[in-house]
Design a protein around this nucleic acid. Structure first.
Lengths: 206, 206
DNA sequence: AAAAAAGTGAACTGGTCAGTCTATATTTAC
DNA sequence: GTAAATATAGACTGACCAGTTCACTTTTTT
């Protein structure tokens, strides 16, 4: 029964630490989370946590990177699988918007923005593993459609920046600040359709 | 010489306290600013500060409200003075974008977003005195142009949300996270023109 | 089963900080 | 000129918290 356990690069409690940290950081924010809370939640000793991570900040960066990569991968997967441009954009917008409005998405955004002053590398890691990936994928999708003659875009880079902003349209800021209930599906559709309509109005070929 | 000093609603040192607080909060953020730093900067004793404000949080709210009102008043003034729609929108966009990218605008945004979890009323006060005012003014301007027949907008509320988002277009997030230099005037114009073009492409009458 | 690796718990250090208090001084109002 | 209001310095309290250390236990490897 020498089942070849996947190489455990970090010792038995690595996952516990990371899961506990994710739970507490997402609940209490960076400053609000105490390391003692995290080890309690993780069911792990403080010494163990500090044997994995040199300090609280790097632990948080690890958590944020994992969340971001997972979510941004999911958000843009199979956008390129669709032939119809409107349909592809609508799908992408749906995924993006849902993530923007999700509890995890909002909380990561709050913490990253709040801490980016004190710890600039947090901001960079987040940007690279989240928004930058979305931008790159969107950019290459748009370029492909331009080459195919389906879209007519002078400044593809700008267009790839505009589309995600349109998907936020007022909702995102209000949610980030905790000023409203999560939007209904109808509200999300209204924003998404508005975004796609406006985007295609400007950039449709012909 | 009984010069009728303007009614000092708050004692002689009120302004000193507020100015010192603004300086330190803008430099160090909310958590990063210690009350001792603030009284030192303000040239005032700790007891004096606490005679004006019951706690640090309310002091910060006062500072943030002042900044926001001043800035959002300036940002939308005289938008309605122009007859040409494109010109009016371009002017509004310029003001908004400049504020979004200014040191004060970025820092207020960072602090508010970071602290809105712990102190929800901070988020509300900020929203009411900033974004909500911009939205209201923009909304009424757009409605007026619709009534005049210059614009054709089904959902004026949505449109008034879309326009400010378009003015951010990638730049804002990068600036908030400290990932780039302030944009040049050319970069700002590129974003603004892109925003106005797209907006009018969708909503121009006729 | 023995050795090596990983984990434990709890106490401890050194530091920070919000908010209070007191006895004293200065400014303003009458 | 006197009383009331306002301001002062800074010590103090009580709490919190990141990160260390150490003697001890459990798990894994061989």
């Amino acid at each position: 029964m020498n089942a070849p356990q996947a190489i455990v690069k970090h010792g038995r409690k690595w996952d516990q630490v990371l899961n506990g940290a994710r739970t507490v950081f997402m609940r209490d924010g960076f400053e609000g989370a105490s390391v003692d809370d995290i080890v309690r939640e993780a069911g792990v000793s403080k010494a163990t946590l500090y044997s994995y991570f040199p300090d609280k900040r790097l632990l948080f960066i690890e958590v944020a990177k994992c969340e971001c990569q997972a979510q941004s991968d999911a958000a843009v997967a199979q956008v390129e699988a669709t032939d119809d441009v409107r349909e592809a954009l609508t799908t992408a917008a749906k995924r993006m918007t849902r993530f923007f409005m999700s509890d995890v998405g909002l909380q990561v955004h709050r913490i990253i923005v709040g801490e980016s002053q004190r710890f600039p590398e947090i901001g960079r890691e987040f940007y690279e593993s989240g928004p930058a990936r979305v931008h790159a994928i969107l950019r290459s999708f748009l370029q492909k459609e331009v080459d195919r003659g389906n879209l007519n875009i002078e400044d593809v880079d700008l267009a790839a920046d505009q589309f995600p902003e349109l998907c936020k349209a007022g909702l995102h800021l209000k949610m980030v600040l905790g000023l409203r209930e999560p939007p209904t599906n109808e509200e999300i559709d209204r924003v998404i359709d508005g975004a796609v309509d406006m985007f295609l109005c400007k950039y449709s070929a012909g």
